[in-house]
Measured scan of single mutants.
Amino acid sequence: MEVRTIKVFTTVDNINLHTQVVDMSMTYGQQFGPTYLDGADVTKIKPHNSHEGKTFYVLPNDDTLRVEAFEYYHTTDPSFLGRYMSALNHTKKWKYPQVNGLTSIKWADNNCYLATALLTLQQIELKFNPPALQDAYYRARAGEAANFCALILAYCNKTVGELGDVRETMSYLFQHANLDSCKRVLNVVCKTCGQQQTTLKGVEAVMYMGTLSYEQFKKGVQIPCTCGKQATKYLVQQESPFVMMSAPPAQYELKHGTFTCASEYTGNYQCGHYKHITSKETLYCIDGALLTKSSEYKGPITDVFYKENSYTTTIK
Rank of each mutant, 00 (worst) to 15 (best):
T27I: 09
K106V: 13
V22F: 02
P78H: 12
A231W: 01
I223K: 00
N157R: 07
D180V: 07
F56T: 09
Y57L: 08
K92D: 05
I45K: 14
Q251K: 10
V42G: 03
N110P: 05
N14W: 10
A108H: 08
K316G: 15
Y155Q: 08
K106P: 08
V189A: 11
M26P: 02
V58W: 04
K127F: 10
G82N: 13
K54Y: 13
V304C: 00
N16E: 06
I6F: 11
A205M: 00
H90P: 05
Y265C: 07
R4N: 14
C112A: 11
K92A: 10
Y265T: 01
A177T: 11
E253R: 07
Y73C: 01
V42M: 13
F217I: 14
V243Q: 02
R139H: 10
A205C: 02
I105V: 06
Y72Q: 10
S295V: 05
L133R: 01
V206D: 07
G82A: 15
I45G: 11
V185R: 04
E281F: 02
D180M: 07
T314G: 15
V203H: 13
S310Q: 15
Y137P: 03
E125W: 05
G194I: 07
I6G: 08
C271G: 15
Q237W: 07
T198N: 08
V58Y: 04
R141L: 11
D62V: 07
I105F: 00
T91H: 05
E204L: 00
N157L: 00
G29H: 09
H18S: 04
V185T: 04
L37H: 13
L179N: 01
M85V: 08
T103Q: 01
F148Y: 01
Y297V: 05
T226H: 12
A231Q: 08
G220K: 01
T75A: 09
M24L: 13
A205Q: 00
D287N: 02
T198A: 09
L17K: 09
Q195H: 10
A69F: 14
N61F: 10
S50G: 12
R141H: 07
T313W: 12
E68K: 08
G164R: 03
Y234P: 02
E68D: 08
P78G: 07
E162C: 00
C156L: 04
V160Q: 07
K7V: 14
Q251Y: 08
A87P: 14
T192G: 09
C227V: 02
R167N: 06
N187R: 13
E296Y: 11
Q123K: 06
L126M: 05
K158F: 05
M207I: 05
Q175P: 10
Q196C: 06
D135P: 04
T55R: 11
M26L: 11
L235A: 04
N61Y: 14
L151Y: 05
V42W: 13
V188P: 01
V160A: 08
E2I: 09
H273P: 03
Y96I: 03
V203G: 04
F70C: 14
L59N: 14
Q216I: 06
F148K: 02
N157I: 03
T192M: 08
C112S: 07
S263A: 09
E162A: 13
F9N: 13
E52P: 06
Y306F: 09
M209G: 13
L17S: 13
Q270M: 14
Q196P: 00
A132D: 03
T266C: 05
G29L: 08
G257C: 01
Q175R: 11
I152C: 08
V166Q: 02
A132C: 04
D41T: 07
Q222D: 00
N110K: 01
I152N: 00
F174E: 01
N129P: 05
Y36S: 05
A117I: 02
I15L: 14
I15K: 09
M170H: 00
Q251C: 10
T64P: 10
F148T: 00
K183S: 09
T260G: 00
T192W: 06
C156P: 00
R66V: 14
N309Y: 13
Q20F: 10
A247E: 05
L163F: 13
K298V: 14
F305N: 13
A142D: 13
Y172E: 06
F32D: 06
F70Y: 15
Q175M: 08
Q175C: 03
T169I: 13
G202W: 03
D303C: 09
V12Y: 05
E239A: 09
C227F: 01
V99F: 14
Q237A: 12
G267I: 13
G257E: 08
M209V: 15
Y138F: 10
A146R: 04
I45N: 15
K92R: 11
S294D: 09
L65A: 10
R66Y: 07
T313Q: 15
G228D: 03
A262I: 07
S263L: 08
T211Q: 06
V22E: 01
G143A: 05
Q270A: 11
G82D: 15
R139I: 08
Q122P: 06
P47Q: 08
G164V: 09
I15E: 06
P249R: 08
T226V: 13
Y208I: 08
S86D: 14
P78Y: 05
T5S: 09
T10M: 11
D62N: 14
T226L: 10
M170F: 03
K229E: 15
